[in-house]
């Protein structure tokens, strides 16, 4: 490809080569081009399957968050202290969602559901916190949870708007317009350890791998 562009970009030099050489060069270039296509296609496949901002292309940040002392409400209507819920030795996976979200939340929740099956043998605590508490009442969260077959160990939390926003800000996940929220998943091995923040949409296998990798580090 380099040859081709180098010569075509300098027509004078190209003409000086003479007809047979030019024909040979062209043939060579064509062959090189055809040979390049599959590899380029693969490359393209690799890149485009995870276009920016979504897909398998996600970024990882390890950081600490100070969990605010707020009381939220779970899908059964019971009040829950967020700190207490997070003070566990088992791994925690946490996401922010809302039930009328049309694009990323169903994907995030479906990924949680799929990963949950994979991780069935392990003790993990999954938490989905709504960022639309004025709409997402415990009943609506219960409905939403049942769409993903969420069993015990997967918490869905709502609460007062101020409290929810405090939590969002604490996790660096606050957006003024809820429709502009971004897909983030937070993993933590156990109480007191830093969080691993994954930005972007993940496949189930990726989430499971991240989780297991984290567990593996513990040993």
């Amino acid at each position: 490809m380099w040859l081709f562009t180098r010569f075509t970009s300098q027509p004078g030099r190209w003409r000086r080569l003479g007809a047979p050489v030019r024909a040979g060069a062209l043939l060579l270039c064509t062959l090189a081009f055809l040979a390049a296509v599959p590899s380029q296609h693969q490359h393209h496949h690799h890149q485009q399957q995870h276009p920016m901002g979504s897909g398998e292309h996600y970024s990882r940040v390890r950081t600490s968050y100070r969990v605010p002392d707020v009381t939220l409400v779970d899908r059964t209507g019971a009040t829950v202290s967020l700190r207490k819920l997070l003070e566990v030795d088992e791994p925690v996976l946490l996401q922010f969602i809302f039930t009328t979200c049309t694009t990323i939340c169903p994907a995030m929740s479906a990924t949680f559901a799929a990963a949950r099956q994979e991780l069935a043998g392990d003790r993990v605590r999954m938490i989905s916190i709504t960022i639309d508490p004025h709409h997402d009442t415990p009943e609506r969260l219960q409905d939403y949870a049942s769409r993903y077959g969420a069993g015990p160990g997967w918490f869905f939390l709502t609460g007062e708007l101020d409290d929810i926003q405090t939590v969002q800000k604490a996790f660096d996940a606050f957006w003024v317009n809820k429709m502009q929220h971004q897909p983030r998943t937070y993993l933590r091995r156990s109480s007191g350890e830093p969080w691993l923040r994954l930005s972007g949409l993940l496949s189930s296998a990726q989430l499971v791998a991240e989780q297991e990798h984290q567990e593996h580090q513990a040993e």
């Binding site: 901002g53 939340c105 929220h181």
Partner: peptide, 23 residues
């Protein structure tokens, strides 16, 4: 029930731009 066409492309078919994803 979770993912039909209208959930992302919407009833109008004009798509959406929610959650950092361009539909």
């Amino acid at each position: 029930s979770q993912f039909h066409c209208a959930s992302c492309h919407r009833r109008s078919g004009f798509g959406s731009s929610e959650g950092g994803v361009y539909v």
